[in-house]
């Protein structure tokens, strides 16, 4: 038994060491999963990311239902002029996609990105860009070395070097920038599973009903079983 346990222990240690080998630690986004944050994230996303990345499974019209945007707000703040359609998925218009082809790697669809990588990864990735004159784009990333994506948030976040020093200030303070990136992350968590909003609203009622059912069944069982010795 003891030999078996120590073998198991050894195996666990190997796996733990494996996990610790990851260099850039992941940061958790300073943002709550709520409608207001998701809405802000959607606006930042439309402004800074939608020109390259699609979130094709999210149709514009569901944003009015899920997030409480008005139809006008969706048209003015989120949709790109020309090409986009209210009842269709959030996909960059053709000219934007041509521009993206310039980066060598096609920018991937991000609908399910948070499912695949997790929110912490996205948040950390967006915070890990640095100025790297050796790269064709001038950018590199600590978490995703040699990423083809430029630091599109530089105007607000400023520019940092490889050691994390601010070379050029951006429009927002570092705290504000983290909140913007956090909101974008929460938005991508929403796109990866929009049912989460509805699930968490309905959950207490459904589970409450199941609990009630259990209690009623338990009382019935007790009543019937009183006779059983």
């Amino acid at each position: 038994m003891i030999a078996r346990l120590s073998v198991l222990f050894l195996a666990l240690a190997v796996v733990a060491a494996h996990a610790a080998a990851q260099t850039t630690p992941l940061l958790s986004p300073p943002a709550a999963f709520d409608r207001a944050t998701i809405r802000r994230g959607a606006q930042w996303f439309a402004q800074y990311c939608l020109s390259c990345h699609s979130v094709k499974w999210i149709r514009y019209d569901r944003l009015t239902r899920d997030l409480g945007f008005s139809k006008d707000a969706v048209r003015q703040e989120l949709m790109f002029p020309g090409g986009a359609h209210f009842a269709q998925g959030m996909v960059p218009t053709l000219s934007a996609r041509d521009a993206a082809a310039w980066f060598g790697v096609a920018p991937p669809d991000l609908t399910l990105e948070a499912r695949l990588r997790g929110g912490a990864w996205i948040y950390t990735y967006l915070r890990s860009f640095y100025f790297d004159p050796t790269r064709p784009s001038g950018w590199n990333n600590h978490l995703f070395p040699d990423a083809a994506m430029p630091n599109v948030l530089a105007p607000i976040s400023g520019i940092r070097d490889a050691k994390g020093r601010l070379i050029q200030r951006g429009r927002l303070t570092p705290r504000q920038v983290n909140q913007v990136i956090g909101a974008i992350t929460v938005w991508l968590e929403y796109t990866s599973d929009p049912s989460k909003l509805e699930r968490e609203r309905l959950g207490p009622y459904v589970i409450g009903f199941a609990l009630l059912l259990s209690v009623v069944a338990y009382l019935m069982k007790r009543a019937y079983w009183r006779e059983v010795s």
Binding site: E200, V206, I207, A210, L211, S214, A217, Y218, M220
Partner: peptide
């Protein structure tokens, strides 16, 4: 068994919804 199904449903729904 109905009681068993009730408790099972609580677990099932907790997973499905959360």
């Amino acid at each position: 068994d109905m009681f068993g199904v009730g408790v099972f449903l609580v677990v099932f729904c907790a997973i499905v919804f959360y």
